[in-house]
Write a protein that binds this DNA or RNA. Structure first.
Lengths: 223, 223, 223, 223
DNA sequence: TATGAATGAGGATTCATTCAT
DNA sequence: TATGAATGAATCCTCATTCAT
């Protein structure tokens, strides 16, 4: 029905699977049973299509994160929230995440689109920076190198887009809980944070097929 | 002088920076002040070039890892070694690492080269699997989901190829130490492992510019 | 107007004149006042273009032959028909004939297209084999070596594509008559066959310029 | 040993099998376990190599023909000789024959090599023309169209390079005898010519593997 | 909206050939 | 003699994009 969405959906899949550079407009059209030219009625250019997807992805992540952070003051809680949400987004929306994390280099250097995405990314990372800074300032965290810690934790979270499978051993909630534990250990926090992951706050990426993470693997009901 | 090496070196840089698909033989030749055709005197095909680099990368990693693991029985020590070496390789050889981690999809599905790389990768991961398995068996580790734990820790280590800078706040040794701490926490190990990173055991990737990690960042002499 | 036909037409001429391997898509495009890429809008590949032409050529020959053979039982008549039609087709459609006879080697060994053409060729040769076999069986022909006889006669007929000129000394009908005579002599047939060559039954190769064979050479009106 | 001959030998095979245009110097070198450059020590250029082979081929044919014609005055005998020798050469040296007959178009238009080959070819055809002319003049032959007759007979003879197999049903001598019979019938000659094919007079093409035609197929001794 | 046709630029790869060693 | 390296031109084909219909 919504052709524009179908295009974004197929594009996202192809970009995630083969990479932007390796994906041709022709193959995208073929995947949609369209013609080359047909695509161009809904899309300005291949690069604009990528930029659109990345922008929407970043905005969705930041917005969702802000929704989840609402009302939280405690640095440990905020860190736990950041870890959980970033993990959940990467686990549930692996295609969007892989494109967001890996295709920045495909946007023309110096283009406004590229600068915009970078700005959005910085905006998001601000949440991590401030949570860590506050934690250190308040004496709740003990960190040798803030940048190192942040990047290491973020790597751990984003890594899930590469390997998380909804039908794997662990529930998404278990993964998040585990990562939160690791994260708090990394900042030497003594806090005990039990996150309840509110999935309704996660971004809704209409172009990515929805995966229900609440379906625990068979025979392994969440405790 | 060694033209073959110069080609591999330039190819590695371009593949790492722009991605394999976005790198043309023409641009590779231009970077080397050669002609298109000249490249083909030393290289069978673009894909073979990629496969060569990936194969050599994987072999180097596995070999180095095995050298570092030599004589170690204790699971905690082995895990610490795995974390340190994987981190160090990704930090010191970010181009090779990014290509190894991200360009598998560029090898033609079903090609023997691809299958070979996958086999080499599995071979490497075996080291992690057995270390974790032994740790659990001996009661030294407590892990809910082995696969999850392994992949999360590996993500953390490999992440360094994206952000580690030799002139950053932390020494490579500090990063490794931090990651080892996090890793041991992740497996609920009570062991106190102090790794001494023997850089002479790391792989020697002749196509990647050597970075001296012992050069501590300015004003921060290693203790 | 019909671009696809214009392409096939020009391709046939070039393939016939220079050979398939010596004909580049560029030169084909140039002959058509098109661009390289434009050709590919109508053609899958250079080899597919050749295969198309050869397939259509073979089908046209077999169909025409079957039309001309319709209702004929007598082996001598059938042989005369085969000689006449093969000669006429090679004389009137020399480009198609040369490509059909000489470019089989240009089709990739093992390709389905190649196998198909070979099958079609075998199908055609069946007409010759059965005519000769029947003639021998009925005692109408006396032949030492059937294969030898068939191939020699076919060579004679196909040879016309190399030298027949509509404005030469002899009418096509005369050539056919002569060849029929020779052919019947070759099989020691005592039959007197007068073929009336019905040109409307010949294949219509739309890509090959039509030559009117009824135009008798100047000063030599057909009797 | 004689590198130049080995090259010509391999070239002849490749040119005959794949065609001149489809044969690369590289593949020729590969077939000889040589390098590209190595070829050029013995050969001026690819085209010169072809021209050499064609020239030697034509000279060999003409010389052999003249040897066989020596002392023969009778047109029927001369025609029989021409048919036999042309047939034998094409049957015994199919590669050379195919190249001679089919690759003239590969010689650059206007090149002296091309003109030379054409002249040699004309020289050879002179033998046919004069035999036919003499036969007609002396009232021994009755021919409607001399050119037609000549070309048809020559086509029949040259066709053997495409299908003759030394281990086939018929001996080369039988093929020649058959063709002579057909040829004499074609010119309405009443002569009974029994050719004895003296194979020692045939050209010796040192680059083409020698096939012994006297070896009659197993179980079919020549009568 | 959608498409068939077209195009200029560029993709990877091979060409015949040269030349210093 | 022979070769490894190199090259400019050409190979077939695909690219993203445009435009008249």
């Amino acid at each position: 029905m919504d052709t524009a969405l179908r295009i974004r959906s197929a594009a996202m899949r192809l970009f995630a699977d083969q990479g932007y550079a390796a994906t041709s407009i022709r193959s995208l059209a073929a995947a949609l049973h369209m013609t080359n030219a047909g695509i161009y009625h809904h899309v300005t250019s291949k690069e604009a299509l990528l930029a659109d997807l990345m922008r929407a992805g970043q905005l969705g992540l930041t917005d969702a994160t802000d929704r989840m952070l609402t009302g939280r003051r405690d640095p440990a809680e905020r860190l736990a929230t950041l870890i959980s949400s970033l993990t959940a987004v990467h686990a549930l929306y692996p295609m969007t995440s892989r494109v967001m994390d890996g295709e920045l280099r495909s946007l023309t250097h110096g283009s406004s689109a590229r600068d915009e995405i970078i700005a959005l990314r910085d905006l998001y990372e601000q949440r991590w920076k401030s949570a860590l800074a506050d934690g250190v300032e308040q004496g709740a965290f003990r960190i040798a190198d803030r940048k190192l810690t942040r990047l290491a934790l973020m790597s751990m979270c984003t890594g899930t887009s590469e390997w998380y499978r909804p039908d794997g051993e662990s529930t998404l909630e278990q993964v998040c809980a585990e990562f939160v534990t690791i994260g708090l250990a990394a900042v030497r926090s003594s806090a005990q944070v039990t996150m309840r992951l509110d999935l309704t706050l996660l971004p809704d990426y209409p172009w990515e097929p929805h995966v229900d993470p609440r379906v625990a693997p068979a025979g392994r009901p969440a405790p």
